[in-house]
Simulated scan of single mutants.
Amino acid sequence: MPTALEASPGERLRTLRDLLGLTGSDLAEMTGLSQSWISQVETNAREPSEDRLRLVAEATDTPLSFFFAKPSSVPLDSLRFRKMASASRTLTRRISTFYGESFRVTEEVTSEARYPSPPLPYATAQDLTEEDIEELAEQTRVALRLAPDKPIPHLTRALERAGVAVAPIVLPDPAGGGVTTNKHFGVSYWAGIGETALIAYFPGQQGDRDRFTLAHELGHLVLHSFRPRAADPEGEANRFAGALLFPRVRAALDITDRLTLEGYARLKANWGMSIQALVLRGAAVGNIGESRKKSLYVQISQRGWRKNEPVNVGQESPLLLWTLLSRLFGDKPYLPASERLAIQPAVLRSIAPQPQAMPTPSASKVTDVTNVVQFKRRGPSAAGEPSALAH
Score class of each variant (00 low, 15 high):
Gln205Cys: 04
Thr213Val: 08
Ala175Tyr: 14
Phe202Trp: 05
Gln206Thr: 02
Leu171Gly: 11
Ala215Leu: 09
Pro172Glu: 15
Gly204Thr: 15
Ser188Met: 02
Pro228Asn: 13
Asp208Cys: 03
Ala215Thr: 06
Gly186Ala: 13
Phe185Ser: 05
Gly192Asn: 09
Arg211Lys: 07
Ala175Leu: 15
Arg227Tyr: 09
Ser225Trp: 04
Ser225Asn: 09
Leu223Ser: 04
Trp190Thr: 12
Arg227Phe: 12
Thr196Cys: 14
Leu214Cys: 05
Leu218His: 07
Ile193Met: 14
Ala175Thr: 15
Thr181Leu: 01
Pro233Gly: 04
Arg211Val: 06
His220Ser: 02
Pro174Asn: 06
Ile169Gly: 00
Ala191Met: 11
Tyr189Ala: 02
Lys183Leu: 13
Pro174Met: 07
Leu171Cys: 13
Gly194Ile: 03
Gly219His: 09
Phe202Gly: 05
Ile199Val: 15
Pro228Trp: 12
Pro228Gly: 12
Glu217Trp: 05
Ile199Arg: 08
Arg211Gln: 03
Pro172Val: 15
His224Gln: 00
Arg209Lys: 06
Phe185Cys: 04
Leu171Tyr: 12
Gly219Met: 07
Phe212Met: 06
Leu214Glu: 04
His216Trp: 11
Thr196Ala: 11
Leu221Ser: 08
Leu221Trp: 05
Val170Gly: 04
Pro203Leu: 03
Gly186Lys: 05
Ala167Asp: 01
Pro228Leu: 13
Lys183Met: 12
Phe202His: 05
Phe185Asp: 03
Asp208Lys: 10
Ser225His: 10
Ala165Met: 02
Tyr189Glu: 00
Leu223Ile: 04
Ser188Ala: 14
Glu234Ile: 03
Gly178Tyr: 14
Leu198Ser: 06
Ala175His: 15
Ala230Ile: 06
Glu236Ile: 00
Leu214Asp: 05
Val222Ala: 02
Arg227Met: 11
Phe185His: 08
His184Val: 12
Ala215Arg: 07
Tyr201Arg: 07
Tyr189Thr: 01
Arg227Asp: 11
Gly192Met: 10
Val170Asp: 00
His220Asn: 07
Ala167Glu: 02
Pro168Trp: 03
Glu236Met: 02
Gln205Asp: 14
Ala191Lys: 15
Arg209Leu: 06
Trp190Pro: 09
Glu217Asn: 06
Gly176His: 09
Arg229Phe: 12
Lys183Pro: 00
Val187Ser: 07
Leu198His: 08
Gly207Asp: 00
Asp208Val: 04
Arg211Trp: 03
Ser225Leu: 09
Asp173Ile: 01
Arg211Ile: 05
Ala191Ile: 07
Thr213Lys: 05
Ser225Arg: 13
His216Thr: 11
Val187Glu: 07
Ile169Gln: 03
